[in-house]
Simulated assay, not measured.
Amino acid sequence: ATPLPIPLVQGVYQDYPAAEAGIQGYSVITEINGTPVKTQEEIAAIMEGTRPGDTISLTAVKDGVESTCTLTLAEWPEVLGGDRDSGFMGVYYYSAPAVKERLDMIADLGLLAPLYLTIVPIDAFIQGNTMQLAILLADTPEQMAWEEPFPLFWGLVRLLFWTGWFNLLVGMFNAIPIVPLDGGYMMKEGVERLFERLGWSQQYAQRVVASISGFVTVMLILLITMPLIGAAVRSVLAMG
């Protein structure tokens, strides 16, 4: 798929002009002050000529419905570049080219790329779409920022992603050194052969196998539960 530089608003900053005017996430900005715009760069060029306190007219399309609103621009917040002189609408965009660059970086990992992609659904579930790769997981509005090479392209991508993801995770899980998994039986056979070669009792070998299986089980439980507990704690603290 080819990334398109369309001005797709991914979200708005609360208590800033766009939010107060009712601009919603996944709207596509089509005009500013009656001037048609097709890219984020064209919007940036227009906004460079504005100042805080200026009023602009903004037209956007969401779900096929066009709406026009008036915004009184604010100053740029310090965390986003408070030294800018131009006015601030309070929107942030979905950048398909940036996502394409991230996907290319993942592809450059070679054989490690599938392992990296295994964390994408987990990351999206725990932290939200932080890596902007949710487009690989399900039908999302971000698709409009990509030119598909053929119909049902993203459906095929997701089918291949989830098929590979589940197969890879099943294989990785089966390799864990816990009896009765295959990895556990391989570990058990290795320990028993080692003890046999050293002339040690097989009874101790069984204890070692049980200890390793128990330790790995505990670590696996912690690995799964700690991120969920951390996310829950952050949510509670945010509510407080």
Results as ranks from 00 to 15, higher is better:
P77M: 07
V79S: 14
T72V: 14
L80A: 10
P77I: 06
D85Q: 14
E78Q: 13
G81K: 10
L80V: 02
E78G: 06
T70G: 05
V79N: 12
Y92R: 08
V65I: 15
G90Q: 01
T50G: 07
D63C: 05
G53D: 09
G53C: 06
T50H: 05
V91A: 01
G87M: 01
A44I: 11
E75W: 01
S86E: 14
T55D: 12
F88W: 04
P52C: 08
L71S: 02
G81C: 08
W76Q: 07
Y93S: 02
F88N: 01
Y94E: 01
G81D: 10
M89P: 01
Y93P: 02
G49S: 13
G87K: 00
G64S: 11
L71M: 11
D54E: 09
I56S: 00
M47V: 10
S86M: 12
G64L: 08
T50A: 07
G64M: 04
F88R: 00
R84H: 10
V65N: 11
M89A: 05
S95D: 12
A45P: 04
G53I: 01
P52T: 05
V61C: 05
S95L: 06
S86L: 09
T68A: 11
G90H: 03
K62S: 07
D83M: 12
G53H: 06
K62T: 08
D83E: 15
G81T: 10
L80F: 11
V91T: 05
T70S: 14
T55P: 05
S57N: 12
A45Y: 09
D63G: 07
R51S: 14
R84C: 10
T59N: 03
E78R: 11
V91P: 00
T55V: 15
E48M: 14
V79M: 13
M47A: 10
W76N: 08
A44F: 10
T68S: 13
Y94Q: 02
